[in-house]
């Protein structure tokens, strides 16, 4: 009896449309964008002496992992136009490499130029996100 109840409940919930309208390319760009913003904001705090270096280093490590996840999601993106995947791929890879470089160098060496590169990557991601939106 309980099993039937659970199945009915699950079916009802599925019908209420829980799949988001975005496709894999858009999600991957959004994820990369979130990683870059997170690293950028933490980097800004570090340069303003409002966060410890140890903490910001962890933030960059986490952001790099998140960007890598975004890249992996793209490889596995089935049922999406190759053109869209390619566009997303370009900007997500660019963002990931910036994060990779800054994280390897260590946040101790982070300076304004590092933040500017992150802002550039962010602008590209936003542009592609808008493009994929149409």
């Amino acid at each position: 009896m309980v099993a039937r109840l659970l199945l009915a409940l699950a079916a009802v919930l599925a019908l209420t449309g829980c799949g988001s309208t975005e496709d894999a390319a858009q999600r991957s760009v959004a994820e990369a964008r979130s990683a870059v913003i997170f690293a950028h904001d933490a980097g800004r705090l570090l340069l303003n002496d409002r966060a410890s270096r140890a903490y910001v280093q962890v933030v960059f490590d986490d952001s790099l992992d998140q960007a890598a996840d975004a890249e992996r999601d793209l490889q596995g993106a089935s049922g999406v136009e190759p053109q869209r995947v390619a566009t997303a791929h370009r900007v997500v890879d660019a963002a990931a490499s910036v994060l990779d470089e800054l994280t390897d160098a260590g946040v101790g060496t982070l300076d304004e130029s590092g933040l500017t590169r992150l802002q550039a990557a962010l602008r590209e991601l936003d542009a592609v996100a808008e493009e994929l939106e149409r």
């Binding site: 933490a42 903490y55 986490d62």
Partner: peptide, 11 residues
């Protein structure tokens, strides 16, 4: 991640 949870505190 936990690092994201505490970002607002630093800000």
């Amino acid at each position: 991640t936990l690092s994201q949870v505490v970002l607002p505190v630093a800000e």
